[in-house]
Amino acid sequence: MIVSSTRCITLLAGALLVASASGQSARSASSSRTPAIPRLADGKPDFNGIWQAIGGADIDLQDHAADQYAPGAQTVVEEHTIPYLPDARKLRDQNFAQRNSLDPVTTKCNLPGVPRITYARNLPFQIFQLPKGDKITVLYEYAEAHRFLYTNGTAHPPGHINWYLGDSRSKWEGDTLVVDSIDFLDGLWLDHAGDTTSPDLHVIERYKLLDADHLDYKVEIDDPKVYAKPWHIDLILYRRKEKNFQLLDYVCYAFPYEKYYP
């Protein structure tokens, strides 16, 4: 484990974040058109904190009207619709018709894959980032899941490996964290609407602070077995700012049985 020796500045930055995020914005507004973003001692944007999606992506990435289970929402797909290959389109439609009995997230509480882990059930997640760290650790309230986004320049391990959350290697492009993930297993669902993937799934996430409290989350999704061309998701992640807010747990695989314990 690589250990940073310059962490008190992180602490300061963290304190600033918690105590006066609005103050920072106000200050930056007077000095520049671009809102100031918090930074770590190494100069990188500081993503530390608890974030949460609030939209309808987990129900359906594309346009959908409200029903008895969930509100409606506009598409988060930049191309508006997902460019399916014909056979994959059929599979998606079959999935959609049976989504209440087939969605591996809502029926089995499986790890949701990437990017769905980011917005699954719209649950919060916490980013832990050290200056000059070898990786960024993300802990999700959903099913005790975690991801390591390696930032140490290492490559994907020899594969293919069947993982739910894939293998994630990251780099900075300016102030944007670019996370490249492969090594997914077959049949992940990107949402409750049955949008699905193959083991060839290749996900590139781009995390960029818009200001202290908003993360722009852009995702490129490529899977030549399923889609005619790469396509993109864009949604906003919001910082949880309630006093003493913390992650709880969402151990959904225990829900049917937990009342019989301890």
């Binding site: 484990m1 962490r7 008190c8 992180t10 602490l11 963290g14 530390n48 832990f128 650790t137 802990l139």
Partner: peptide, 9 residues
């Protein structure tokens, strides 16, 4: 074990 300012993971 990971250590972050204010947290032990």
């Amino acid at each position: 074990i990971e250590q972050h300012p204010g947290y032990v993971l």
